[in-house]
């Protein structure tokens, strides 16, 4: 469990941008895993299963609790895990936070595609399998997400220059 808890929690966390909600979803995912453990064949299968269930549970949770996410302050977001950060180039925390806000404002499916692509570094086909959507939909969704994010960044830079 310790091996996968960061992955499951992070999917829920980046999607719901709420620590308590992410923990609830992640706990539910692991409880479901304990029930299904006998049916999962390999380590890779467990990872795939956890990723898929974390995605679906997060989307379900967001749908059930519409509006709750808007109440969360983005100042509560923790910094990315130090173990990963070590040895990498310095980055601007303000830009990171701004991008997290922008991703959080994306539509549900688009948000999840972006999270799987950049948090999990999943391939397009892997994303399609995880989310149960066609490959072409993943491609077009990601393309639209890039366009939307670029536009938002453009607007943010424009505002900053004024």
């Amino acid at each position: 469990m310790r091996e996968h808890q960061r992955m499951v929690f992070s999917i829920a966390y980046h999607f719901l941008h709420n620590g308590a909600a992410a923990e609830e979803v992640a706990q539910d995912v692991f409880l479901e895993l304990f029930k299904k453990l006998g049916t999962l064949e390999s380590r890779a299968h467990v990872t795939f299963w956890l990723r898929r269930v974390a995605c679906h549970r997060s989307i379900d949770y967001a749908r059930r609790n519409k509006g709750a996410a808007a109440e969360v302050s983005w100042d509560e977001l923790p910094e990315p895990s130090h173990s990963i950060e070590r040895g990498q180039a310095h980055h601007d925390p303000m830009l990171t936070k701004r991008l997290q806000q922008m991703v959080a404002a994306l539509p549900e499916k688009m948000r999840m595609v972006v999270i799987l692509r950049y948090q999990e570094e999943a391939g397009l086909e892997e994303i399609a399998n995880t989310m149960g959507i066609p490959l072409n939909t993943v491609k077009s969704t990601l393309h639209r997400a890039h366009a939307m994010l670029r536009e938002k960044i453009g607007q943010a830079l424009g505002e900053a220059n004024v």
């Binding site: 808890q5 992955m7 992410a22 980055h91 999270i115 692509r117 994010l149």
Partner: peptide, 14 residues
């Protein structure tokens, strides 16, 4: 953009 997204969406510890 992709590089910045990777940084912004890094895994976080529960």
């Amino acid at each position: 953009l992709e590089e910045e997204l990777k940084k912004a969406l890094r895994q976080v510890e529960p």
